[in-house]
């Protein structure tokens, strides 16, 4: 059998022949008993190769691989509690609160203001006048809020540093 004939049988088995080639091969199978045998031998091999099974790894292979996988990466997605704009507003409020604290302190110890300059005294007087309408309990509450906010901001920054890295 010619080399090209052998190749043609595989083309025929793999269903890669053109219509013309297919007709020719069919005719050959009908006319030539040796061609029939040549085809059937190859086809039997083809069928057996198709029926061949894959090899299997050992029983605990899956578990072994799962155990060997790198540990999961715990990525905690953190978003700031306060937005950048909120931060600005927050610090303005903090400044105001700080002023209110100073005012509160000066109001409780009025004698301490005497040592300051006139300019500072005027500012002090202005702050006292502008804040005098705020009742002391409200000022105390504002101070408490100020301390709480500072603590929360500090915690926020700390947590961000702690969880941002994997």
């Amino acid at each position: 059998m010619k080399h090209s004939d052998e190749q043609m049988w595989w083309k025929y088995i793999d269903d890669e022949c053109t219509e013309e080639e297919r007709k020719m091969m069919k005719q050959l199978l009908e006319d030539d008993p040796s061609a029939k045998e040549a085809f059937m031998l190859r086809n039997a091999l083809h069928q057996n190769l198709t029926k061949g099974e894959l090899l299997e790894p050992s029983f605990n292979f899956t578990n072994k691989v799962m155990d060997a996988l790198p540990p999961p990466e715990y990525i905690v997605k953190t978003t700031p509690i306060i937005s950048p704009l909120g931060h600005k507003i927050f610090w303005v409020l903090i400044s105001l609160l700080l002023l209110s604290v100073i005012v509160l302190l000066w109001r409780t110890e009025p004698g301490t203001t005497s040592a300051y300059s006139v300019y500072l005294k005027e500012i002090n007087q202005f702050i006292i006048d502008s804040c005098s309408w705020i009742p002391v309990p409200v000022l105390q509450t504002l101070v408490m809020l100020f301390i709480t906010s500072i603590t929360l901001l500090g915690l926020d920054a700390l947590m961000k540093r702690r969880f941002q890295k994997v």
Partner: peptide, 24 residues
């Protein structure tokens, strides 16, 4: 692929003949 299958066919002709003997 072609050469491999031809080689396998030649090596296993005895076995393959046994398989197709009823069909011939």
């Amino acid at each position: 692929l072609y050469r491999l299958r031809e080689t396998l066919k030649n090596k296993l002709t005895r076995y393959l003949r046994e398989e197709i003997k009823d069909l011939l």
